[in-house]
Nucleic acid binder design. Structure first.
Lengths: 110, 110
DNA sequence: TTGTTTCATTGCAATAATACGATAAATATA
DNA sequence: TATATTTATCGTATTATTGCAATGAAACAA
């Protein structure tokens, strides 16, 4: 994309953007929803469930794992993925500081 | 990025991803925070405040406007941008249906 | 009218993201 | 050991995103 100038923004602004980017693709939304609903902990199940190539799902899982939102446990030849509760809570708190702003000056402008 | 296969996901999953993408760049986070804090309603103020080129800020504003999150009112030679409260609320409700999941099976797996 | 200010658009270069086939790596099974 | 199963990684084609200089367009001021 051309380099984002992260250095001119605050740590918090960059961190919010990074989490939001993790959620900016419907495949990753679907993966996380599946993990919440359980049963489909395993990579292969997600591939069947979602309908993208195995390599693609694996790549999306890697991104979520890199951010810490999910963790994987090897079980034989398959891998079980789960949400990391602590990171998820941290993320939610962070995003809410941004989303829960009050809208002022609704009358004085626009 | 290669084409995202939006057709294999639900309407809701795609809509969540679209809003998240709007927030996936620190410049757009900063713009919205500025609009919340008011004073810097005007495009030129945002350019000074944030420190990206005028063309770049204008482009980010366009994306947010296209999504409906902000609206602009021409005032002479300048343009005043504000949050669209209704769209913002809709977005928050939508994102919370995703973010507010309960984490089950924390014991049975991973 | 002429110049000034402010914002949007265009065009381009650089880089990131998406998707998938092919293949490697690791474990289980016969 | 040989084969099958499952996941990760590599390579690559395609498309999207970021950023900015240059230029337009619109409103204002002199």
């Amino acid at each position: 994309m051309g380099v984002s100038k992260t250095e001119i923004f605050t740590k918090q602004q960059n961190e919010i953007a990074v989490f939001m980017k993790a959620f900016s693709h419907p495949a990753r939304i679907s993966i996380l929803q599946n993990l919440f609903e359980k049963d489909t902990c395993v990579c292969g199940d997600l591939v069947k469930e979602i309908g993208l190539a195995q390599a693609t799902i694996s790549q999306h899982l890697k991104e979520l794992k890199l951010l810490g939102l999910i963790k994987g446990k090897v079980e034989g030849t398959s891998v079980c993925y789960c949400i990391d509760e602590a990171v998820w809570k941290h993320m939610k708190t962070l995003l809410n500081t941004f989303l829960d702003h009050d809208i002022k000056n609704q009358d004085t402008c626009c």
